[in-house]
Design a binder for these strands. Structure first.
Lengths: 231, 231
DNA sequence: AAACTTCAACTTGTATACAAGTTTTTATAA
DNA sequence: TTATAAAAACTTGTATACAAGTTGAAGTTT
C-alpha cells in the first residue's frame, strides 16, 4: 500500500530536500516526474511549485521548465551582514538584561556544544547535531529578549543563506574554532562585557565564508550564480 | 473589450491592493468572486492565492475560505527592531566610507523631502509621494554600501510591517518630525559623527508605533491580531 | 418552544483534457 | 555533408467537472 501525500506534506518534503541540498541547486524539476513520485495529479504538484517559487527555491520558466534556484554568494554575504547587525544588538540586550538564570542557560548551551564535539558515550561526532546545538545558543538570546519571530526569520526565510550554511556544515568541519568562539561569547555574557560583541559575531558568522572560501567558485561553482552575471 | 489578465498580473494587483490596505485585513476572498473580476477560471486564481499565502498575506483554510491575514503588532515591533539594528550598521558604514559625492546625494535627498512637504508649485501635499521620498534617503545608504538586497528585503517581504507603515502614512501626518529627523541624519553624515546613530534611528523608525499608539487596539483593532491571542 | 436531524448551498481540493509555447528530432533540399 | 524547414515530443498554462469537507437553514421530533 502506497503512502498518500497531501499538498502540504509534498511542499514540506520538497522544501526540506532543497534546503538540505538533497536536491541540488540547478536541478530541473519535472512536474510529470513529481506526479509519479507522489502519486498525485499535476494540480497539487503545480500548487507546491508555485509556493516554492515564492520562496525563491525554484524558478518556473513558462513553457520551458522548473529549475531549483542557484545560490547567490552576494546575497549570502548581505544576509550574514544583516545577521551580524541584528545579533549584535540582540546579544547586547541579552547581556544587559540577563538574569542569573539566563547566564546559567548560556553555560548549559556551551556545555552541550562541547559534549556534541566529544560525545561521552564515545559515539560518532554528528555534524548535523553539532550544528543544531550551535544554534541553540543563538536562539537563547532571541527567545530571552522576546524576539522569537526575528529568530524564525533568520532561520527560515533566506533561501540562499540557509543552503549556504548547510553546504558549510557538510563540507568543512572546523569544530574547534566554533567552540572557541562560543566560549568567548559565554565569557562576554558572564562578565557583561559588550564592547567586543560585534567583532566576535563577525568572526563567528562569517566563518562559513572563510571556510568555504574559493570552493564557492571552484568545486561548487555549479551551485552558485556566476559572478558578474545579471541573472 | 475587456482586459485580459495573466497569472502574474493578477498576483501583483492583489498583492498591491492588500499591501495598500485597499483590501482590508480580515476580509474574506472568494475564489469565485475573483474569477469573475478578472474573467479567468479558478486555476490561475488558486495559483495566485497559494503564492499570497506563502507571503503570509492571506490564509487559506481548507474547505472553509480564504482570508486576508491580520497584522501582528508584536511582529511589527520586532521588524522595526531589526531595521534599527541593520540600518544603524549600514548608516555607520555609509558615514565611514562616504565620498563627497555621497554626502552631496544625501543633501539632495533631504532637499527633495522638504520640497515634497512644501511643493514650490503650490500643489497639494501628497502623502504617498512624501513617504516615497523619505525612503530614498535610506535607500541611498544601502545602495551606496552595496547592500541592495537588504534594502529590498526590508521593503518587500514583511507583510505585517509594510502594511503597518501604510496605515501610519494614511492616518497620521507628522511631516515636521520626519523632516527634523532627516535633517539631523544629514548633520551626522556631514560631520561624520557615528555615536548617536542608533538613538536617532530608533526615534525615527519607531515613529509609526508612537504616532498610531493606542489606535492599534481601538480604531484599528479589527486589523490586528488581538493581544495574547495564540492565533 | 427547544433540541436534534437532515439536507442543500456554500467553501476549497483534485483529476483530467486541452491550449500554447519551446525544444529537439527528423526529413528535405541545397 | 551541410543547411534549412517542418513536425513531433517535450514543457508549463488554463478551463472544467467532480470530490470532499464545512456551514447554516429548514424540517422534524421531543
Amino acid at each position: 500500500m502506497d503512502t498518500i501525500y497531501n499538498c502540504n506534506e509534498i511542499f514540506r518534503i520538497l522544501e526540506s530536500e532543497i534546503l538540505s541540498l538533497s536536491i541540488a541547486p540547478g536541478q530541473v524539476l519535472s512536474e510529470h516526474q513529481l506526479c509519479e513520485r507522489f502519486s498525485v495529479s499535476r494540480t497539487p504538484i503545480r500548487s507546491v511549485l508555485q509556493r516554492l517559487q515564492e520562496k525563491e527555491l525554484v524558478n518556473i520558466v513558462p513553457y520551458k521548465g522548473t529549475v531549483v534556484t542557484l545560490l547567490d554568494f552576494d546575497i549570502v554575504n548581505q544576509m550574514i551582514y544583516q545577521r551580524v547587525a541584528v545579533e549584535t544588538m540582540v546579544l547586547r540586550d541579552f547581556i544587559r538584561n540577563s538574569s542569573p538564570l539566563d547566564v546559567e542557560l548560556a553555560r548549559h548551551a556551551l556545555s552541550n556544544l562541547t559534549d556534541a564535539y566529544a560525545p561521552k558515550d564515545n559515539g560518532a561526532l554528528n555534524p548535523d547535531y553539532f550544528f543544531k546545538v550551535d544554534l541553540q545558543m543563538h536562539e537563547l538570546w532571541f527567545k530571552s529578549t522576546r524576539k522569537p519571530y526575528l529568530w524564525e526569520n533568520i532561520r527560515r526565510q533566506q533561501s540562499s543563506y540557509t543552503r549556504f550554511c548547510v553546504l558549510d556544515m557538510l563540507e568543512t568541519r572546523n569544530y574547534e574554532h566554533v567552540i572557541k568562539e562560543h566560549t568567548e561569547m559565554l565569557r562576554l555574557i558572564e562578565t557583561k562585557e559588550t564592547s567586543s560583541i560585534e567583532d566576535l559575531l563577525t568572526q563567528h558568522l562569517y566563518g562559513g565564508v572563510r571556510r568555504l572560501g574559493s570552493m564557492v567558485f571552484n568545486e561548487f561553482k555549479d551551485y552558485f550564480i556566476p559572478p558578474e552575471s545579471t541573472l
